[in-house]
Design a protein around this nucleic acid. Structure first.
Lengths: 336, 336
DNA sequence: CTGAAAGCGCTTACAG
DNA sequence: CTGAAAGCGCTTACAG
């Protein structure tokens, strides 16, 4: 009696029940071609009767569109995972997922794992949002090879890709100005060793400003992968060789955690002996005691912007190469 | 010369270059059938030469598998979004994404929006992880209709689905015991109005214990959608009608924020006048001043467990209906 | 406005 | 171990 028994109904079934052809059902569904109102009604009824749900895989194969975008970052797990896992990546992913819906798209979360190729092997996408890529970023390379449209959040180093500007320069400026205003005179900067534009810009602004103030610059490089512990050790060394340091700018929040631990172990009071600031206003910044002065980057707005740009790009529309994100705002807390 | 110019290479191209049939290429790729080592080598070389990448949509259509799982929750945005957006959902999603890789699967993040049907319209999945569903949960209903395998984190109310137990009873017990130990005598409970097992269990434990202690129970119901503001107003009312309240158990962290604001506005000191505890150890709990005593639910482990169970379910293996999650641990902070 | 047919790129019985 | 062929469920020219 029921010829659809045991399997999911298809357009074919809908067509048969509605007394039309497959093509007409498809047209009614997509709205690409006009369909007679009465015919459409018969089709809608057949769909309801059968509980028809389109097979997305078939549709994707036919159209070549996946209605999926992906979000990813190459920041190592030590930084992007752990207790700050809910950082950059997740904050952006949450916002992008919501905005992707406006474009009938789903969001795939590509986790930061050792091998980007593994992470991407089973994800098909129309486009990708890549967060703070490094020079020769593995994700960027893979995506380029696949010809996937990309929008970068942050700034790409070498590849010529559209990006949403997060105002690195301004962010560094805000934090440095704050430290100086608070009376810090001997300010150290802790940055990651990976080649990321954010580091270069931060470094540049730091050095030029220190030069201007007549303060000898003091830059500590820590591999991102060493995370909090690496920063902890580096800070101990720093304070031994430069006991007069009274301000520390940790470019990554995981580093800031290490800094705070080192200061505690060395018996330095925060903020009276040493003022500490960091860039990302995440869990770590809020949870420290005293809580850390940081910058609200307005990641939800940045993600919304990036999603919209990516959708334009996928649709073949022209987009600007650089789009300014919202202006970051300083969040002053006890650490400074 | 190059017959693949302008389009992505397919198995057909690989087969031609390697001098074998499509089927053999497919077998070499999937490892489902044995392939002569020498033949395999020719195929691998052809793949490398062409830069062949399998078309996932075609594979999915053919096999019926999407190699995708989804994570979702029906908690309204007022609770799951905003400054606690990085809560439950994201913490679980991050962990699930990493563990899904072990099963060659990608993770789709289904955002908590008003219309679950819209959110699911364009996502194909082999299975889903549903977080703390309510009675007649819209996501659960949609998934059931589609026949999608589901693992619940928390506990399903009506539907008979496998779940990972988060120890609601024990969690309520830990928080109540802590409040009593700290000297609270008049303890109020603030729960959501939605029908979720977590509320029922918490309520039950609270009422039975208050009865035992001879403390008159005082339960405030706030619609989840009203979030922090709803809880704020409810707490003001509560303190006016029950000025002797000296302990508050907020079942949702957004509610706890409202509680804290109300206490400040009423001039009640925390913890000396009123002790406050909440369940979820998220951003809100950490950021409050004083920070809130909460419970670490070990969501990453729970997500890992749920992912593994879901994969077993998808593979057709038998799984237990109830799987115990890790034992939650109390995180004592300044609020109590 | 509608239908018949081709074809997207895979995998999998089936046959050898 | 390998090949030839069917077919997954759609959408889209093409023809009427």
């Amino acid at each position: 009696m029921d010829s659809t028994a045991g399997r999911r109904p298809t357009v074919k079934d809908v067509a048969r029940i509605a007394g039309v052809s497959q093509g007409t059902v498809s047209n009614a569904l997509s709205g690409m071609r006009g369909v007679d109102p009465e015919t459409r009604q018969r089709i809608d009824q057949a769909i309801a009767t059968l509980g028809y749900i389109p097979n997305l895989a078939a549709r994707r194969m036919r159209t070549g569109r996946t209605n999926t975008i992906a979000v990813m970052t190459s920041m190592p797990a030590a930084v992007s995972a752990g207790s700050s896992r809910l950082g950059f990546l997740m904050e952006i992913a949450a916002s992008a997922a919501i905005h992707a819906l406006d474009y009938n798209s789903a969001l795939v979360l590509v986790p930061p794992v050792a091998d980007p190729a593994v992470a991407l092997r089973h994800v098909a996408m129309d486009g990708a949002i890549v967060i703070e890529p490094q020079t020769d970023d593995a994700f960027l390379l893979l995506l380029k090879r696949r010809g996937v449209p990309v929008v970068v959040i942050g700034q790409p180093a070498s590849v010529d890709l559209p990006w949403v500007d997060m105002h690195y320069y301004r962010t560094a400026e805000m934090l440095l100005a704050h430290l100086l205003t608070q009376g810090a005179r001997r300010i150290a900067l802790i940055v990651g060793t990976s080649s990321r534009v954010s580091h270069h810009v931060t470094l540049e602004r730091y050095e030029s400003w220190m030069l201007l103030e007549g303060i000898p610059p003091c830059v500590i490089y820590v591999p991102e992968a060493d995370g909090e512990d690496g920063s902890y050790r580096a800070t101990l060394d720093l304070l031994r060789s430069n006991p007069d340091i009274d301000g520390i700018f940790a470019s990554i929040d995981a580093f800031a955690s290490g800094v705070m631990r080192a200061l505690r172990d060395m018996g330095r009071a925060v903020p009276s002996d040493v003022r500490v600031v960091t860039r990302y206003n995440g869990l770590r910044a809020r949870e420290e005691r005293p809580a850390l002065t940081a910058v609200d980057l307005h990641l939800d707005q940045i993600a919304a912007l990036a999603t919209r740009l990516l959708m334009d790009l996928i649709a073949g529309r022209e987009i600007e190469r650089i789009t300014a994100g919202p202006i970051p705002s300083l969040v002053v807390r006890g650490s400074s």
